[in-house]
Design a protein around this nucleic acid. Structure first.
Lengths: 245, 245
DNA sequence: CGTTCCCTTGAGTAGTTTCAATACTTGTGG
DNA sequence: CCACAAGTATTGAAACTACTCAAGGGAACG
């Protein structure tokens, strides 16, 4: 069983507790695979409104636009259902944008409806996935309340490091992203100029070197310590691990 | 049908789309009612770990504590399920604390399990409720990224005004809360001293007067404009309203 | 009627913003 | 293969926002 499309869904989290049967069922939810280039608005574009989408490859940003400025309120990595909540909410309060090129798996809402009615085990996993998003949101709130700009950027990469590791993508010394410094600024709620200075400070401190979105470090622990990062909110195999019930 | 305990659950949002049967079933989920005083840690205290809780009366804060400092990452008003996600996550990444005295309705997880298996309509409403929390989290992230301290405080009260109105509690001229300025500071990610100056600025600008947590204003629209508040993220009866499906 | 918590104010410091100018990178067409 | 354009990154200076430390004032509760 390889599950080429959904292999990373909840990997490192609840996935290990799902039955083979459920995993196969989840793989079969994907009706089609779509590819998109950089900076594509995934909601208005070719993406159907009656589907929800699993991110298979690449990064997706959740943004809120206000005429003047863009705010990034979340990042998604492969294995994340990026708009599962649209199935329940019908509309989104924000925009989904690709960062770099992406591959998405489309799941028709009628199939999700069937899951809700007939497969409570899978429904619960879906619910769990959206709750993970909420837990990440809470940490972002706290990071914005607690940290200065350099630490916010470090926290961002620390979280990505952890999330990528959980889905089995090891990040030895370089974490590659397509993010510009303006993207980092919009994620951290600071100006682009200040994001640049924050990046420079991380370099000076020896915490990590960010070049065109790629972070290079040889001491992830030091980076995480600097960012006051504690990954338990990601509900991976650790302190807050989901117990067998 | 009055539903004395759960009358405010999803009121102004999905509630109107639920059947009488479902509403009765939801009311019957509540096994017992608990009362707690001010500043009680609801997770460690008398509150059972095998229950989730509906807030019936009062305010509850979601906080993350870090030895040195406390960060508030969310507020709950009556009608909110404050720890519904514990049913799915089993553990929480944060703490729930009463702000002022509260009444909670306890729902045993076994009843929720039955709902998940047998009542997809109610399960979906529960899911919807946790997604609303996530939408509010996203707006908080954006508010922290976008707004200065006085506007953050104004946004906070604007949101509370809207949420209380949705559950049928009109807020004509005074919005009463038990929040201290230190609470406001911890919600907005600023120091207590600065929260005080922000409150003073709102007063000087004629936006609103906050005295011991109670906000007095005679122009809610002006306050919301000042805070750049747009309530569509709350998924009430408006632009982003849930369509009949 | 005093203690305690909460609010207020002042002064100096640190973090962040804006505006503005300059360099580096990448991709494209000649 | 070079030249240019567009996007991205860097740096400086002045203004603003927010922080800390510190002290004093006010309101609620016993």
């Amino acid at each position: 069983m390889t599950y080429p499309l959904t292999r990373e869904f909840l990997a490192g989290r609840l996935r290990e507790h799902l039955s083979q049967n459920a995993l196969t069922h989840i793989e079969d939810l994907i009706e089609s695979v779509e590819e998109h280039g950089d900076n594509v608005q995934l909601v208005e574009s070719g993406v159907s409104l009656d589907d929800s989408h699993l991110l298979i490859e690449g990064f997706v940003l959740r943004t809120i636009e206000t005429g003047e400025r863009r705010f990034i309120v979340g990042i998604h990595v492969p294995g994340d259902f990026i708009d599962l909540h649209r199935f329940a909410l019908k509309r989104l309060d924000h925009t989904l944008v690709s960062a770099g090129s992406v591959r998405l798996g489309a799941v028709p809402h009628e199939r999700l409806q069937t899951v809700m009615n007939e497969r409570p085990d899978i429904a619960r996993a879906m619910w769990f996935a959206t709750l993970l998003d909420a837990a990440i949101h809470r940490r972002w709130i706290q990071a914005l309340e607690q940290l200065d700009a350099p630490r916010r950027i470090a926290h961002l990469y620390a979280e990505l490091h952890e999330r990528l590791t959980m889905i089995g993508r090891q990040v030895p010394r370089a974490l590659r992203t397509p993010f510009t410094q303006l993207d980092l600024a919009d994620m951290c709620g600071v100006s682009a100029v200040h994001a640049n200075r924050a990046v420079a400070k991380l370099r000076e401190l020896g915490i990590g070197e960010i070049r065109r979105g790629d972070l290079y470090t040889d001491d992830w622990d030091a980076l995480k310590r600097y960012a006051r990062f504690d990954g338990s909110y990601l509900y991976g195999h650790g302190a807050l691990k989901l117990q067998d019930d």
